[in-house]
Amino acid sequence: MAKLYFYYSAMNAGKTTTLLQSAYNYRERGMRVAILTPKLDFRAGSGTVASRIGLQAEGIAFGRDEDLHRILEADIAEHGKLDCVLVDEAQFLTKAQVWQLSEVVDQLRIPVLCYGLRTDFRGELFEGSQYLLAWADELQEIKTICHSGKKATMNLRVDEGGRAVQDGPQVEIGGNERYVSVSRAEFKKVMRGEGGIEPLQSPLKF
Rank of each mutant, 00 (worst) to 15 (best):
Q100Y: 14
Y24H: 13
V182W: 01
E28Y: 14
V190T: 02
Q56P: 00
G174C: 11
Q21Y: 13
M154E: 09
C84A: 15
L113S: 08
E103L: 12
G54F: 08
Q107P: 01
E141M: 07
R178F: 01
H147C: 01
T16G: 05
F92R: 02
L20D: 10
Q100I: 07
I76K: 12
S183H: 01
Q140V: 03
Y115A: 04
N12R: 07
R70P: 00
V112G: 02
R29K: 15
Q97T: 13
S22W: 13
E172A: 04
V190R: 01
S181G: 07
T37A: 10
M1K: 06
G195Y: 02
A57K: 08
A152V: 02
A96G: 09
L40R: 11
A90G: 12
L40H: 10
K151E: 06
E66K: 13
D65I: 11
G149N: 01
G59K: 07
S129E: 07
L156H: 03
T153V: 05
Y131V: 04
H79T: 01
T16E: 05
L19T: 10
E73Q: 14
A74N: 12
P38Y: 07
E141R: 14
A134G: 07
A136F: 12
C84Y: 07
T94H: 11
Q21L: 14
G80D: 12
D67Y: 07
T48A: 06
L108W: 10
L133N: 14
R184N: 04
Q140F: 03
G59R: 08
V85W: 13
T144G: 08
S102Q: 15
E141C: 02
K39T: 14
E89K: 06
K3W: 06
W135S: 08
G14C: 08
E141N: 09
V180S: 01
E103K: 15
E124R: 14
Q130V: 06
F92T: 04
A74M: 11
Q56G: 01
L68C: 10
L156A: 02
S129R: 09
E198K: 15
R43H: 08
R192A: 14
K81Q: 12
M1G: 04
A23K: 14
E58H: 09
S129M: 06
P111Q: 06
L93A: 13
I142V: 11
L36H: 03
D120I: 04
L93Y: 12
S181C: 07
F62C: 03
G30C: 11
E141K: 12
G80A: 07
